[in-house]
């Protein structure tokens, strides 16, 4: 139990230190700012400087609080229970799914990556019936794709540009008149 709470404190300490580091990033960026053409009495440095200082002081004090034993209470989970010990497997699955989505969306298109994302996330979070899940994932992606591209006329990638080499803006031409 003691070991556990020490470990928890380490996590919070790392996070608080990260926030502390952010304050230094803000300050360094502000100091290096070149005030090229200052118009008026307040230049572009004043606000960032105040924010950086405030953040520096607050996160510094917070680090002291954490070292003294103050702990943040985790938020509850809607539709389930919050557990104290991290469950890494589903988390990594979700993270990989999201990163894969970001990396491949323009190549494979939404009609492939959408269902893959939905399937992977639901599966990671505990959905078991794979066939039903795959079916719903495809239906949902098709509905979302049509809703956005045809209904709202917003662009979602169809992907596979490397095969037919057609400019995506040309492909979307059918729906572009209203722009």
């Amino acid at each position: 139990m003691i070991l556990n709470s020490v470990k928890e404190a380490k996590g919070e300490l790392v996070f608080t230190s990260f926030l502390f580091a952010l304050s230094i990033v803000v300050l360094v960026d502000t100091i290096n700012l070149t005030e090229s053409n200052v118009v008026g009495f307040v230049g572009p440095k004043v606000f960032p400087f105040a924010i950086g200082i405030a953040l520096f002081v607050l996160t510094g004090l917070q680090i002291i609080s954490v070292l003294r034993g103050e702990r943040g209470t985790p938020e509850g989970v809607e539709g389930g229970q919050q557990v104290d010990k991290p469950v890494w497997r589903p988390f990594i699955q979700v993270l990989v799914a999201v990163i894969a989505y970001a990396a491949l969306i323009d190549f494979l298109g939404f009609l492939i990556m959408g269902p893959v994302l939905f399937f992977a996330v639901a599966h990671a979070l505990g959905a078991t019936k794979k066939l039903k899940l795959a079916f719903i994932a495809v239906i949902l992606a098709v509905v979302v794709f049509l809703g956005f591209t045809q209904g709202l006329r917003l662009y979602l990638p169809l992907g596979f540009d490397f095969i037919n080499q057609i400019d995506p803006s040309v492909e979307e031409d059918s729906g572009e008149e209203t722009w």
Binding site: V77, G80, F91, L95
Partner: peptide
């Protein structure tokens, strides 16, 4: 929220 639920949540059982 989803990342949080994946890492610190156990869904169901409600």
């Amino acid at each position: 929220e989803v990342l949080y639920v994946a890492l610190y949540g156990r869904l169901g059982g409600v």
